[in-house]
Computed example of a mutant assay.
Amino acid sequence: MDEEKKIQILEEVMLEYGNDLVRLAFNYVKDKETAKDMVQETFIKCYEKLDEFRNESNLKTWLYRITINQCKDYLRSWHYRKVQTKSVIENTFRTVFPLTEEKIINQANTEEMLEIVASLTKNYREIIYLYYYKSLTISEITDVTGLNENTVKTRLRRAKQRLKTMMKEADIYG
């Protein structure tokens, strides 16, 4: 078979079966780019072996068989196993350690924040505790403490200002 005829057949095959072969390969390798690479290899083999095709089977089934074999070879390959192992390890580290690191940082910040709140004077500490930790409203704090509502608002505002300054000095929460 001459080169021109092989190229024409290959172009027709690529247009007609390309998408189907990519979907087939994807079912094996579970990665779109790798599936495309497998199909590209299939088309290269098709081009190289087109003279040997004996028409004992349908061209489509022949291409499917080449693609499946290509995928199976890839899945058995040293490269794939190495990449998969590396990927599993990286994903494990990415999912476990950032969460652990984030928890430790948050816990340290929370502990430091509690120390800062504890260092406030009793009047401010009490208002902050009731407002933020017990989620009471201004009027509820007024009822609990017996203070005037404006006094509670003033203490809360001043306590927030002091906390903000102290948090900046301690470099908590940026």
Rank of each mutant, 00 (worst) to 15 (best):
V144I: 11
D31R: 11
T145R: 11
E126P: 01
L156F: 02
K153A: 01
I7T: 02
M166L: 10
M113C: 09
N148P: 06
W78C: 06
L130V: 01
F43Y: 08
S139N: 04
K153N: 09
S87H: 10
L15G: 02
R155W: 11
F26Y: 12
I66M: 08
D31G: 05
E11N: 07
I138F: 08
I172F: 09
E4Y: 14
V144Y: 12
L50H: 03
E90H: 01
Y129S: 05
V144M: 10
V96H: 12
K49S: 00
E16A: 05
M167W: 08
R125A: 08
D2A: 07
T85H: 15
Y64G: 03
V22H: 06
C46W: 08
D73I: 11
N148M: 15
K103V: 02
D51P: 03
Q161P: 04
E126W: 04
G174N: 04
V83P: 02
N91A: 12
A108F: 05
T142V: 05
F43V: 02
L59G: 06
R76Y: 11
E149I: 03
D20C: 13
A170W: 04
K103F: 03
D143W: 06
W78Q: 02
V39S: 01
L21P: 00
W78G: 07
T151S: 13
L156G: 05
M166D: 06
Y74K: 03
N27L: 12
T137M: 14
L24G: 04
N69K: 08
L50E: 11
Y17N: 01
I44W: 14
K122S: 11
Q8V: 07
C46P: 03
